[in-house]
């Protein structure tokens, strides 16, 4: 019974059990991630995981790579410092929708605009899970949360549209059900130079599903199964998510644009070189 799982070397076993609830999609997303790490062919000593605060913020602590668990909303600028100070690193920001889109939203759009070489994995459970299920900028219209007890009346962000419009060179969305496809997207994002963004729609049985009477984690997975539409190359603008509506998933954007560090250093070499 003591046989090791072949992926164990990429997890900090001494930190398991993790803190996530039964039925949460975070665990399966991490499984995909460690498979993608292997598939990517990257030197894993040069891959760094940075998280912010929240349930997803704990990912950094479980993955056996150089990892940083930072402040709420600041994973992306922290990662910007790492990525620019040592361009040999592949920096992955793994955090939640509240962390990356609300308190950290400004950093997301600017890192994408600059095309900083990093992969941002945003696990979207439609609300603030760790603090007890409060409404957030991704909560679908009319969905209930502890601070929207009568339903949410704020229009949510469409994350893939936001990332694409801000300049991300790779944008994909999957649910926690799409393990094989998610792993493939993560692998592609890891191999891509520049700002890549992956949204993972994840069940939150404890807060989101319970309050909205959507059943348990399995029921949410069943919902994803019945309602996800795979549409590669779809216009991200058309991929809004409503309350219990169809979810458009797939790879939306995959384009080439020089990442910021390359663009900067090559540009400066031309100008400053002349000043010598």
């Amino acid at each position: 019974m003591n046989e090791k799982h072949p992926m164990d070397y990429l997890l900090r076993e001494d930190r398991i059990p993790h803190i996530w609830c039964p039925g949460c999609g975070l665990g399966s997303s991490v499984s995909c991630f460690i498979m993608a790490l292997e598939d990517s062919g990257l030197d894993l000593n040069k891959v760094v995981v940075v998280s912010g605060i929240g349930c997803t913020g704990r990912v950094a602590g479980y993955i056996n790579l150089d990892s940083f668990h930072t402040t709420h909303g600041r994973a992306i600028p922290f990662a910007t410092g790492l990525a620019l100070a040592n361009p040999e690193l592949k920096v992955v920001v793994y955090s939640g929708d509240g962390d990356l889109i609300a308190i950290g939203g400004n950093h997301l759009i600017h890192a994408a605009r600059r095309n900083i070489n990093m992969t941002v994995i945003c696990v979207n459970n439609f609300l603030y899970g760790m603090t007890g299920g409060q409404v957030g900028p991704t909560t679908p219209l009319y969905a209930k949360a502890t601070t929207s007890p009568y339903g949410n009346f704020e229009r949510p962000f469409n994350l893939v549209y936001l990332a694409a419009a801000s300049g991300a060179v790779y944008v994909a969305r999957w649910t926690a059900l799409h393990l094989r496809r998610l792993t493939k997207s993560m692998t592609e994002a890891l191999q891509k130079k520049g700002f890549s963004f992956i949204e993972i729609i994840s069940p939150c049985p404890t807060s989101y599903a319970r309050r909205n009477r959507l059943g348990d984690g399995l029921d949410q997975m069943k919902f994803y199964h019945d309602n996800s539409i795979i549409r590669h190359g779809a216009d991200p603008k058309e991929a809004d998510i409503g309350f219990q509506t169809k979810i458009v998933v797939g790879k939306f954007i995959d384009v080439e644009r020089p990442d910021y560090h390359t663009f900067l250093t090559e540009g400066l070499a031309k100008v400053v070189g002349e000043r010598k």
Binding site: V50, F68, T70, T71, G73, R74, I76, P77, F78, A79, T80, G81, L82, A83, L84, A85, N86, L89, N106, H107, H110
Partner: peptide, 19 residues
């Protein structure tokens, strides 16, 4: 950076990159 929150976070990240 886009603000001082990001500036401070970025210099911490860079320091951990050894710079």
């Amino acid at each position: 950076m886009e603000d001082e929150l990001g500036s401070m976070a970025a210099i911490l990240g860079a320091s951990w990159a050894g710079v």
